[in-house]
Amino acid sequence: MKKISILGSTGSIGTQTLDVVAMHPEAFEVEGLAAGSNTKLLLEQVRKFNPRRVSVATKELAEEIKSSLPEGVKLYSGKEGLTEVAAGGEADTVVTALVGSVGLQSTLAALEAGKHIGLANKETLVTAGHLVTELAARKGVKLLPVDSEHSAIFQCLNGENPKDVASITLTASGGSFRDYTRQELENVTVEQALRHPNWSMGAKITIDSATMVNKGLEVIEARWLFDLSYEQVHVLLHPESIIHSYVEFRDSSIVAQLGTPDMRVPIQYALTYPDRWESPAKRLSLSEIGKLTFKEMDFDRFPALRLAFECGRAGGTATTAYNAANEIAVARFLRGEIAFLHIEEIISEVLQRLEIVAYPNLEQIEHCDQTTRELAATL
């Protein structure tokens, strides 16, 4: 029986991970659950899956739920709580389903403790890719991608020689506003931005999909996961989200991974790799789909994606700043403080103002992250 801990258990990826666990109760044991402030759902999860360790966002929330927990469950809070759930206990695999760079410290702690990582928190590699991949290699543990695009690439590369890879292509749905012009984006609302046509995701990721920042983060993540140059990473608009991504090899052969849009498939594969088990996902019928469409990526229409490539090539803390500026800008948009197009403008302005550290240590990364957030909050 595989023991797992989930960071971000009440979010979209976390709840779907527990769907997979519930479908295979004979195969998985939940060691730990870390959530934010949704204590009602967390307590439901605790009663159903009986974890040994639980963490919430604050000490105050921990006090509120303390008396509701079954006897013997260890309760933690804050950043320290994330680390305890990630690195403590007997989990074999830690699913990092947190949103944002808050997942970095706990992921590093889990790696240091020798845990395999089911990686859904792309910001970890965007913020500190060199530190994370170096530590994983040193500890001999796996970084198993949970994002549908990276899982697709991972599956396409099974059994292949990495030297034979010519390029990879990440597909993008285009998000809520894929058919809008730049002019039409000027007055869009939060409610409109949160209506993703294909996927059911949390608010922040849905906004990132609409700006194409999410794809930018995935480009940077792919560079680290698969040890590629940015010249080898491409993005293609594919509105149906059926081809999740593909690999072109040097002999011109292309291998793609297809399926219905259901995150439980890549989540389950990360937990069962290298085996494949029965899945709750609907099976794909290409005859029902009828046709698949594709468009070249327009970097003038989606400048945030262009910025991601530029930051990736610049390296160092450029990608840290890209992510941190976006997190603040998205939060401000969701609160109604700024317009939709201001998100990418804030990211661009921050990047122009900050000095980049070429090969940062953890302290320098954290300093860049904090400085960027403070600046992005004022623009």
Rank of each mutant, 00 (worst) to 15 (best):
S77G: 08
F177C: 04
A172L: 11
Q16P: 12
I220Y: 02
G216H: 04
K291V: 00
A34Y: 03
E296T: 09
T260M: 13
V54L: 01
K291Y: 06
I343E: 00
H238P: 09
D147M: 08
L131M: 15
V146H: 04
A339L: 14
E80F: 12
R195M: 13
Y273F: 13
G290E: 11
A137S: 13
S37A: 14
R335Q: 12
A222V: 05
A128I: 02
S148P: 05
F294I: 14
L82V: 09
Q16N: 14
G78N: 14
V102I: 15
S173D: 07
F340P: 05
T58Y: 06
S55I: 08
T189H: 02
G174W: 02
K40Q: 13
K142G: 01
K74Q: 15
V190W: 05
E355D: 15
V85Y: 04
E221I: 10
F309N: 04
H24R: 13
L143V: 04
V219L: 00
W277G: 08
E366F: 12
T124P: 08
T371I: 11
N187L: 08
A377G: 15
G259S: 13
Q105F: 00
M201D: 10
L143Q: 01
S101F: 03
S5Q: 10
D164P: 05
G100F: 10
V141Y: 04
R52V: 05
S252W: 12
A35T: 03
A358P: 06
V213C: 11
G315T: 08
E29M: 10
L170I: 15
E71Y: 09
E26I: 10
A281G: 10
E31D: 15
A318I: 11
M23F: 11
E218P: 02
V102P: 09
I117P: 06
L104E: 01
G202N: 07
K2I: 13
A331S: 11
A128N: 08
F28D: 00
I153Q: 06
L135R: 07
A86D: 12
S252V: 10
V188N: 11
H130M: 05
L125H: 07
M1D: 10
R283T: 09
H234C: 03
A210D: 08
L237K: 12
F302V: 03
S209C: 11
G216L: 07
A137V: 00
E337W: 10
R353T: 14
I4T: 07
D298N: 15
